[in-house]
Amino acid sequence: MKRQIPVLLVFVFGVFMIFQYFSPHEYSEWIYKFLMDWIYIIGIFAMALGIWSLIHVSYDKIKNKRHDWGYSVVTLAALFIMMFFGITGFDENGEWGFYFMTQEGLTNPMFRNFFNHILVPIETTMFSLLAFFISSAAYRAFRARNVLATMLLVSALVVMLRFNPYFGEAVGLYMNKIAAWLLNVPNMAAKRAILIGIGLGMVGTALKVVLGIERGYMGKG
């Protein structure tokens, strides 16, 4: 009961999805659309589980006064305040209430402030950290002392320095040409080899899942 029903469900729906690809029939398309809607809706219910876990872990930290518990207060406060602004707002009569989704999106001005002045700056700054990390990663590659890492580094350097003006026009020109060739030709070959491998790996894993051979996702490997 605990294991057979899920395996059966996986098999039935998995086989149906394979079948529907080959069958353009109205009925198979109709069921396909249902199933896609369903996955989407179930995902929304999972949100509750996620938020519950976040609250639970933070609360636990605060209650037991674990190291850095004060920051968990910040997380919980931010979560509740943002949720409050996220589900309340002004309605069309300018009255505050449990409603505010309109054509323009979420209209609560505080929600927008949180979005524009907390979410956006932190998000873009986190993203921009990549500039530093890619430099330190390049340095790490420099120190590598084996053939493979050297090959990686040399081709990275060729591509990185392709617009460098200090090599003089002639060298720069050829570097640019070689970089373009590297990005077009061997790149395509390697990507294709990887994609064929990935395709097979995915297909193999998916088939194992549908046939109930692979059950790792249910907690039984």
């Binding site: 090959m151 061997p186 790149n187 990887i194």
Partner: peptide, 12 residues
């Protein structure tokens, strides 16, 4: 080798 050259190029 081809894979590594490619990874280098896309890194750069």
């Amino acid at each position: 080798w081809v894979l590594m050259i490619t990874f280098g190029a896309s890194f750069g």
